[in-house]
Write a protein that binds this DNA or RNA. Structure first.
Length: 433
RNA sequence: UCCGCAGUAGCUCAAUGGUAGAGCGGGUGGCUGUUAACCACUAGGUUGGGGGUUCAAGUCCCUCCUGCGGAGCCA
């Protein structure tokens, strides 16, 4: 009799039926003439029972050979059983090994981080990693949905670039037919021309930073979403940041409840972030507040990781820190008309110590100002001719921000280190697997 | 690049300067309801590399390597 092949997501519709499933042996236990096989198929887990008196010798011999992560095709009758995790179990009568798995290296007990990262390709098979990858997938979907449902056009910015985008970070250099080329650290400069073309645009792709950062908040390859909007000015940018974040957080809470529960995420700590407004604090006031709290920080300094955490912990939702000193920020930012030593820049700090998840600004529309800034930052003007063209041919006010996907996902999942928020993390000293 | 911590069995970790151990995983056997099952037996080591101190070094010292955490920089 040919039995339907189903997945563990479809169990309820096939109760008391004869079915076939394919998957991997997550775990197995033996108890005399009984074998409990926990099958994993990417959708869930199903306990399968092989009972010696009720199966053929061949099936029994096969069951005896099962090891962790053996891939199998298993058939039998699906029954509801309170003793089984998940509520259903399969009374197996036929079992085929599709691929053996001798001495699977990941055990049921704890492993160290270095070992797990070296086995990242296998680590992805664990329950916790499934949950994180699904949250990441859902976050990417929600982000694209947010922008595309609001008439933004997705513009893919180049990854190979001829020069530094912002002239600040260290870039990965590669050989481009004998010429130096660099892996992009930001799509923004390429997005601004697209905003002049299509008004509301965003890019969402990988970016690269060659800084030798060794912290839980840094990757050398990470994904960033960057909207850029024509006619948007600073106050509108702040509104966009909080509307975007609150909307995406809401969707994660709606759609990833099961995964967040598996990750033991206290979602009550995310609830406040689903509603606006978010607190906004001027850079100068933030410095004063930090000094009150006993920080060794002066006006003109950038925030350290601890300062960010301290500041963010004053609020139950992300806080927008505004109007940074211009010389802390990139060359293209618009100076505050009320105080030209400040830039119309915003950093959004996530709660619970997850740090800066968004950095944005209104961009300078003035050719003269940008020419001055490029000189001041020691950047080669030739490399930016095309960028300056935007201020020559119909210059326009515009603004945008960038959000690091992994920092956002880490915050949603409540995981301490960015390396778990991306399938194959690239870190200083780690390019494998 | 700088500061701090670590490296012992396949994995996670013990071991006053004095005979290198346990749990998990592997192997063999037992058990008809296990939930990271349990029980018994068993195999498994150049203690990251090199040098030094000492009667004696996993342990103390120097050095290199690797990893982790943090700083700087940033999302």
């Amino acid at each position: 009799m040919k039995r339907p092949v189903i997945t563990i997501a479809q169990l309820a519709a096939h109760a008391d039926q004869e079915v076939t499933l394919r998957g991997w042996v997550y775990n197995w236990r033996k108890k005399g003439k009984l074998r409990f096989v926990i099958l994993r198929d990417g959708f869930g887990y199903l306990q399968c029972i092989v009972f010696r008196p009720e199966v053929s010798d061949e099936t029994w011999e096969t069951a005896v050979e099962l090891t962790q992560e053996t891939s199998v095709e298993i058939s039998g009758k699906l029954v509801a059983d309170e003793r089984a995790p998940g509520g259903y179990e399969l009374k197996a009568d036929d079992l085929k090994i599709l691929g053996t798995s001798p001495e699977y290296p990941l055990g049921k007990k704890d492993h160290g981080v270095d070992f797990l990262l070296n086995k990242r390709h296998l680590w992805l098979r664990s329950k916790r990693q499934h949950a994180i990858m699904r949250v990441r997938s859902e976050a990417q979907f929600a982000i694209r949905e947010y922008f595309q449902s609001r008439d933004y056009t997705l513009i893919d910015s180049p990854i190979l670039t001829p020069a530094a985008c912002e002239g600040t970070s260290t870039l990965f250099e590669t050989d481009y037919f004998g010429e130096p080329a660099f892996l992009s650290q930001s799509g923004q400069l390429y997005l601004e021309p697209a905003a002049a073309a299509l008004s509301k645009v965003f890019c969402f792709g990988p970016t690269f930073r060659a800084e030798k950062s060794k912290t839980r908040r840094h990757l050398t390859e990470f994904w960033m979403v960057e909207p850029e909007v024509a006619w948007l000015q600073f106050d509108g940018l702040l509104d966009l940041c909080e509307d975007f974040l609150s909307e995406v957080v809401s969707r994660i809470l709606d759609r990833c409840a099961v995964d967040l529960e598996r990750l033991e995420r206290d979602t009550s700590k995310l609830e406040a972030s689903t509603s606006t407004p978010y607190p906004r604090i001027d850079y100068g006031d933030a410095i004063n507040k930090l000094k009150e709290l006993g920080c060794q920080i002066e006006h003109g300094d950038d925030f350290g990781g601890d300062d960010e955490t301290l500041l963010a912990n004053l609020y139950d939702r992300p806080v927008l820190v505004t109007r940074y000193p211009a010389d802390l920020k990139a060359f293209y930012m618009q100076p505050d008309p009320k105080d030209p030593t400040r830039a119309l820049a915003v950093d959004v700090l996530a709660p619970e110590g997850y740090g800066e998840i968004i950095g944005g600004s209104e961009r300078s529309a003035s050719l003269e100002h940008l020419e001055k800034q490029i000189k001041l930052h020691g950047l080669p003007r030739e490399a930016f001719e095309w960028y300056l063209d935007l201020r020559t041919y119909g210059s326009f006010p515009h603004a945008g921000f960038g959000m690091g996907l992994e920092r956002f996902v880490s915050w949603m999942c409540g995981i301490p280190h960015l390396r778990e928020a991306i399938p194959y993390p690239r870190l200083i000293n780690r390019l494998y697997p």
